[in-house]
Amino acid sequence: MQAKTTILSLPTEEFVHPGTRACTGCGLAIAYRVGLKALGKNTILVVPPSCLTVLQGLFPVASTKLPCLNVTFASTAAAATGILATLKSQGKTNIQVAAWAGDGGTSDIGLQALSGAAERGENFIYLCYDNEGYMNTGVQRSGTTPIGAITANTPFKGKLQQKKDVPAIMAAHHLSYVATCSAAYPLDLYDKIVKCKDMPGTKYFHIHIPCPPGWGYDPRYGIKVGRLAVETGYYDLYEIVNGEFKLTAASEKLVEKRKLVPVREYFRAQSRFKILTDEQIADIQNQIDAKWAAYYKKDE
């Protein structure tokens, strides 16, 4: 088991330049920066249209120091497969291919390409950053928008449907590594990426990203909101290594403590959940409690 990375042992080399087009207080910028540190210098990135394309910049300036291929929405995983095939034909084996896509580009539009690549067992890391909506086009609902969230096309009642559980879909492909992370816990993200680098086949990451304009909170509370999502048990951090499920980092500690922060605090910190009634919140709280009761039972 590798030692946990601390702030002082985190590499200081940066792969992102300052002065990006990302919004003030963007959670993605934190996760992207730490994620690239973990992936390292020998990495080729594949990015479909998403907030990350905004962050990476317009021609002729790019904010990322690594080579990056910008592709169409539906072809992220297919393009990564193509790069892998090229690297193989050129005999380059030490280069890591990483696809970074948004939640819309993963759960809605890019899912079939990703599913195909995962089934073929292509050797790359797929990182989905989940800001729970199509944020860069003006906050529209996506497959991973949670129930009750107000978006541009669910403006009055909020989204009526449940959030799509993409990590579970990917785990059903029997991948060697599936993990969920959060921008509020960047060191956990770093450790997980370093851990999975040498594993065979497709590796899938789901990263929870607080988004100030889309979620409706003051940018300075970005990390606090991300942390609340984990501490309330609303979003759990786990990894599935060869089919073996294990809670990690802050979520693992919650099981030890047997105590969750009321989910109400997470909802009331953001304006997108303002139409949720107390009954609806109580309902969601019951679902979370049931989920965690199962975790507690497993721990005993």
Binding site: H17, P18, G19, T20, R21, L58, V61, A62
Partner: peptide, 12 residues
Amino acid sequence: HSENGPGDGGRT
């Protein structure tokens, strides 16, 4: 093909 450099979004 873009070259990397700081200040893609201008002086933010």
